[in-house]
């Protein structure tokens, strides 16, 4: 048996495959729900690493084909921007 708690689905928020599988089994079968509860996809990468793995897990457990599932919506500003940069105050380390 795989050690699911040693398999990292989301590096940003340290979420394991075990966490994801338990949630899906508890009835959270929409990636947006899983995002809100586990924070998967709320980290700096916005779900680039975890998104597809979670979809596959949802599909495996619920039997719904992956094509029928949707990924989470991305939100700006991508990659992050400092407040000072928004304001045009260049007091950067650069």
């Amino acid at each position: 048996m795989m050690k699911e708690d040693n398999i990292i689905v989301c590096r940003c928020e340290d979420v394991t495959l075990k966490d994801i599988r338990e949630l899906i089994k508890r009835g959270y079968t929409n990636i947006e729900e899983i995002k809100r509860i586990t924070r998967c996809g709320m980290g700096p990468c916005q779900g680039k690493n975890c998104g597809q793995i979670i979809l596959r897990e949802i599909s495996m457990i619920t039997g719904i084909p992956v094509e029928k599932l949707t990924l989470q919506r991305y939100r700006p500003p991508f990659g992050g921007i400092k407040f000072s940069e928004v304001l045009g105050e260049n007091n950067d380390e650069k």
Partner: peptide, 20 residues
Amino acid sequence: SKKATWLLPPLKKLRIVRQW
């Protein structure tokens, strides 16, 4: 950004990662 950094200046160095 204007409001937050006026009120809490150290936030200037912090990155905004998402808005909704």
